[in-house]
Design a protein around this nucleic acid. Sequence first.
DNA 1: ATCGCTTAG
DNA 2: GTCCACTAAGCGATT
Length: 632
Amino acid sequence: MAVDHANNQQLTTNYEIVNTLPALTSWIEKAKKAGRVAFDTETTSLNALQAELVGFSLCVEEGKACYVPLGHKKKGMRDEGLGDLFVTPNAPLPTSPVPNQLELAKTIALLKPLLEDESVLKIGQNIKYDILVLKQHNISISPIDDTMLLSYALHAGEHGHGMDELSQRYLGIKPISYDEVTGTGKNRLRFDEVEIEKAANYAAEDADITMRLWKFFKPQLPKEKLLTLYETIERPLVPVLTKMESIGIKVDLPQLAGLSKDFAARMAEYEREIYALAGREFNVASPKQLGEILFDEMKLEGGKKSDKSGAYSTDSGVLEDLAEQGHVLPEKILRWRELAKLKSTYTDSLANQINPKTGRVHTNFAMAIASTGRLSSNEPNLQNIPIRTAEGKKIRHTFVAEAGSLLLSADYSQIELRLLAHVADIPTLKNAFKNGDDIHAITASQMFGVPVSEVDSELRRRAKTINFGIIYGISAHGLSTRLGIPRTEAAQYIEKYFAQYSGIKSYMEECKEFARKNGYVETLFGRRCHLPSINDKNPARRQFSERAAINAPLQGTAADIIKRAMISCERKAVSEQCKMLLQVHDELVFEVKENAVEQAGKIIKNCMENAANISVPLTVEIGTGKNWGEAH
DNA sequence: ATCGCTTAG
DNA sequence: GTCCACTAAGCGATT
């Protein structure tokens, strides 16, 4: 039973195990009558697409909840997946070794009409997970509310949005922990091996807490003017993402395996060369050992120990400087590291994450992690697939379309700089975007006082770095390291930029002032990003928040815009012929039947370019190909 | 569990 | 004297 620490007493709760169909029917009737129900699934995996349903809980009013066990097994009765192949043909199968559980098919038949009833609100905590689990049983849950997303709308940047944290913070209830139920370490039980009584207390409490959190958060949204953000962006995005995640993207396994083998062989060759140059064998993957070799044993210059750990830094910047001085070892290390990264994080790992049922990889898009409103992607992360180097591009080429289809990539051009031009109201920048000019060349021309026709690649590169710096809440020191120039010179550039584009300085000051006064900044669509350290007495922490205060409205508005575009693409572009697969912050990836590509491209471009109505045009570039590398 | 490093936008 | 550009995820080494 949960302990209410705020009141230092046990909660008044009434949790019931439901194991008859009439009892379940009675709970469903209560939910229908109330018009809302908090709902939670219990499964065998945190990964929704690998999860098997074990049971579910319902809560109609605070303190009263039930758990419906479906798939609990005795320990040692795990279905190992290959088990069926080795079972004697006529032997009884261990379908439901623990008694007093409802039959899955009959239960689903009762539950489905409730979860699909448009007049009953289904409330979940991270309900995208439950939607994916029940999609396997042909249930599509609607309408929905999600307490994690309510918290995210209200408190992004302030704290996390997991149920335990929210419960303790806002309800003063410390819920039964998952570890407490399953145990930890090598003896950890799978949820279907947990005793029903124990599982029921845990699961029913989760549904109860979800209902309590909903009652606490939901009325706050209109008061805080966040209901529109939630109702028009966050909530409608949930079914869009569940669809993308369950479709997944095809990866060419033989090609990936070939790359792994190639990288392994080349790494081994580098290792031989590296040991010869170092004069001994060591662990190339250990920055600590590498630093000692380079700076203690070989006595190379420029070794700087960080004051925190006392170790030498050996990052790519340091190694590149050494390589430029003509040292061969740092160059070899850089090449080895590139391959090691690609092999461990991409070729080996992705191959293991191909779902055997679909032959595709299915990411999870996390909706409540990034403080700015962006999505993040995990297990696997498909938002950081390499593109910048030749070796890395080979990995992007293993993401392919099904035979008869093409991948279509649609990405916003310079969206954050366009948003800066709009929100800071900079006429020169706005005109450049309206005319379709080369924005970095225009900046270079204005900054360095030369005609656009005379801007060479070096000046353009500097202007590009400065433009990016501005979006990130520039500091003189940061710019000086990026451009490899003295700090004083970097400071002059920034001054020049502010003089040239007078609106920028005041925009930045307004962002910081708004943050200091309110504790958060806002996007064009009203999303808030909280900055708890904006008034910190520690200058480092405070300045960090000040830079975030400048960046978050731009990054966050871009996130709002692409989320709006995804929702409109789902309505206008997506079909059996055109499937939305991925979002990578300013890019959407679709898989489109070859004969539908041209039409789909037009609709997608239109949806994306019209996702916001601002004083500069938003432009979208479309590319297609048999693989993601070609489509880019 | 945290650090150091690298991948992406 | 201090920050050492914003937002993420993940790997292997180290503690």
